[in-house]
Write a protein that binds this DNA or RNA. Structure first.
Lengths: 366, 366
DNA sequence: CCGGCTACGGAAAACGTTTGCCACTTCCCG
DNA sequence: CGGGAAGTGGCAAACGTTTTCCGTAGCCGG
């Protein structure tokens, strides 16, 4: 057996180990090897066995690029997220990968860090690698780039922001439900001055959340004007709370556009010696895994990352599997709802939150 | 040509848009197009310009798989992490990706979730896609798998655990320095009963940390026996603290094998009304970004994720760029050191931490 | 004006698969 | 016993690049 000689030989750079080598050793044609490997049912079990034996012995792995080249399918899905370091996303990536593994797909992950240049290079990379589909989880994208993908008939999945065009599936998120629950929960706890820390205003998802907040406040007769803009990161939350402390009319509760912001708020509150939830109630959004482990545990609006990833993946998969170019669902909905933990409490009547405990004198600036 | 009729037909999903099409329109040969695109200096600027024009007009992107097939380099690096949902890793992934983008590489990311099956499929996927190198950041790997990669001469980068074989570069982490600092910091704060919450004992990195703890304790004459095993996740930290509370001889300080564990500890402490750092000092390991935002901010041992990613990437890159098969550095070192924040304080003499404030009676079980 | 060198660009052979088409066996049925 | 159908498996043509090898044109010096 040449094989053995080779494997153990000293020089042994590497021999061919392609489908032809297998064919030669199994004494069949390459076509048969290919068919065996792809489990085409018409090949004789005898033969198949012989082929598999050789394959195993040689530790042969088919070359995916060659496969892709001829078949026209790369078995790669692109996944564009806005910032992998935001704990919201790793959960999604993990789920996406699990599904990919199950279905023999690969993931081309791309993190745009909110940089248009990076977004562009993301798209380029996707196209160059000839991905079979792209899930775009970065909330907001320039149309030019989009066109490049659409022109190439790449199946696309968006969350929130997708255009309503054929061949594009959208996952709509029902922000209002969760945010309304959050607002009403605070209202029930007698909060009247409820603030909102928004996400960056160039993110469609952030805009939608803010809008949901306004709606929820207005419909119960509260003023939705206490809004400052954060950045969906912790430092943004910290800065926002500082801003609120400078106000004469301080909020007693604050709703955040995402959990990272809320964590920032709690951290700043700690620095300022504002007790949560005693002095200030805080609610987040996303329900990242960490939310359960903050101090105090964060009450937040859940938007299941696993669910989102699953929907996105399956949408892509079914888009790629069918031949007929349409009539699949092109719109999915993701639910949100409040999960209560420990970061909210009854409003303390007539008491101002920030610094309230610092100076013993209660401030009553109205 | 049936081909052409089809390709240009009205239905014309998509026209060819390959290098040949470019060549045709620019009235040059495909070879020239290829050379132009790859910036081979010998092509006439005139011609090049003409080619680029067509390329831009048509929005042509070269097919990476075809390129890879013929050139033998896929321009993909594999990145194997143990759990992308552990905040330690996204930071690395991000840095790795930044470098990849700069160098026109792609990343094949794989998260093994500590599952040997997944580890195996990871390796298979890497080989199938013919990656140009793999960085293995999951701390511990079976040799069989390793052999598959080595057999194929794939450049490999390990952290901590790599075998000392040629063609494999190792990043050694200097755990002792940081951990010694941590222990001595606690000792200086008059802590004597210092506990350690270890990582899973099948992780080489966890074993190394534990060993460093033992060394550091022993060398200053303290007993290093207060050790329980966690899992490098938050729930493990919580459970560990529960175990400690059951002890008659409770620790006044606890050093954790990673930051997630520390976060779990702080959370459980909150539940048990143990004040940190008043009743219990806590130190983490890794210095994930979040450590700055815990309550209180976590004192921890820094091990720069960016640095780690950079070293790994550049090691891979230089391994792939040189022709000569050796004499590069195959060993790097990563430093660790303590960063002080607010989760440690002077030991309260004669006072037991857990439940100390619950019952007013001080417990004095010795 | 010619010979030879340089610089450029084209033809064609890879790269490792899949797959359409065709040929050869069997086998069954009339 | 002949003919057709069904079951197998091989040949060779793609897939979209890179790259080697060669031919040609232009230039310069003699």
């Amino acid at each position: 057996m040449v094989k053995c000689i080779f494997r153990r030989s000293v020089v042994a750079k590497q021999i061919a180990m392609d489908i032809r080598e297998i064919a030669r050793r199994a004494k069949v044609s390459t076509a048969t090897v290919s068919r065996t490997i792809n489990r085409v049912p018409t090949v004789d079990p005898q033969l198949a066995k012989r082929v598999w034996k050789v394959v195993d012995e040689l530790g042969y792995y088919p070359n995916t690029q060659a496969r892709a080249l001829v078949s026209g399918r790369s078995r790669i899905f692109g996944l564009i997220v806005s910032e992998i370091t935001n704990p919201f996303f790793p959960e999604i990536v993990q789920t996406f990968e699990n599904l990919a593994v199950e279905n023999n797909y690969e993931i081309l992950l791309t993190s745009t860090v909110h940089d248009p240049k990076r977004m562009e290079s993301s798209v380029r990379r996707m196209i160059e690698r000839r991905v079979d589909g792209v899930a775009i989880l970065t909330f907001g994208m320039e149309d030019v780039l989009l066109d490049h993908l659409r022109f190439r008939k790449v199946p696309l999945v968006f969350v929130d922001v997708g255009p309503n065009a054929p061949g594009i599936v959208n996952i709509r998120i029902d922000y209002l439900n969760g945010i309304r629950q959050a607002v009403q929960h605070l209202a029930a706890l007698r909060h009247r001055r409820i603030a909102f820390i928004a996400g960056p205003s160039n993110l469609k998802s952030a805009i939608a959340r803010r809008a949901a907040f306004k709606t929820s406040m207005t419909e119960i007769g509260l003023s939705p004007d206490l809004i400052v803009e954060g950045n969906h990161r912790m430092d943004g939350g910290m800065r926002a709370l500082v801003e609120f402390s400078h106000l004469s009319n301080r909020p007693t509760a604050v709703l955040c556009s995402n959990d990272m912001t809320a964590i920032g708020v709690m951290r700043e509150a700690y620095d300022q010696d504002i007790k949560i939830p005693g002095d200030l109630s805080v609610i987040g959004f996303d329900d990242i895994r960490l939310a359960e482990f903050t101090i105090p545990p964060l009450t937040t609006v859940q938007m299941s990352q696993m669910e989102l990833a699953k929907i996105a993946f399956h949408a892509l998969l079914s888009e790629v599997q069918r031949e007929s170019p349409s009539h699949e669902r092109s719109e999915y909905e993701l639910h949100t709802s409040l999960v209560l933990r420990c970061s909210t409490a009854l409003a303390q009547p007539g008491r101002h939150p920030a610094k309230a405990r610092k100076g013993n004198v209660e401030q009553r600036i109205r």
